[in-house]
């Protein structure tokens, strides 16, 4: 098996659009599948992905997203985001990419550490019980950096 110098990947997820959440999840899962350690720090809007009540209703953005190849005004029409989101979710299901809640379980079982940002949790007035059971802890930025303090560790902001 080829050896990689990457030993650990730390992801900071700051957004809650479906494509960003899945980017972080797929990269973290992919790291574990290669024998690389992985952790995700959920901050600001990224926290939506670990809130029990919100995680299954994340959307993909149709406005302000040039890759959607549709006029901005059209993307803003009622139902457009829901339609684009449904299409994306259907395609993901076909590729065996799990929905957000199941994906979080998978990540946790795979040994991915999941952290919530203390400042953002306070800012959005969230409680521990609002967040998924698989969450490892609510920590501050300093504690997260401390986890990066080793050779072969990379940080990625999404």
């Amino acid at each position: 098996m080829e050896k990689t110098k990457v030993k650990k990947m730390l992801f900071i997820l700051s957004k809650a659009t479906l494509e960003n959440v899945y980017a972080a999840f797929i990269m973290a899962n992919g790291a574990r599948m290669e024998g690389i350690e992985a952790e995700i720090f959920f901050t600001f809007f990224g926290l939506e992905a670990i809130q029990k009540k919100k995680l299954e209703s994340l959307h993909t953005a149709t406005v302000g997203n040039p890759a959607m190849h549709m006029p901005t005004m059209l993307g803003g029409l009622p139902g457009m985001e829901a339609l684009a989101t449904k299409m994306m979710k259907d395609r993901m299901e076909k590729l065996d990419i799990p929905p957000v809640g199941e994906f979080l379980e998978l990540l946790s079982d795979s040994g991915v550490k999941l952290w919530a940002c203390l400042l953002a949790v306070d800012m959005f007035k969230l409680k521990r019980e609002d967040l998924i059971d698989e969450l490892d802890d609510i920590i501050n930025v300093g504690s997260f950096y401390a986890r990066a303090n080793e050779d072969g560790c990379h940080l990625l902001f999404i």
Partner: peptide, 24 residues
């Protein structure tokens, strides 16, 4: 896929990682 393993009923993901450490 790893999701396939999760749904297989043969083994759970945690044990799978334990049995085949470092890229199961």
């Amino acid at each position: 896929t790893i999701r396939g393993i999760k749904k297989s009923g043969v083994i759970d993901v945690k044990t799978f990682y334990k049995l085949f450490p470092g890229g199961p």
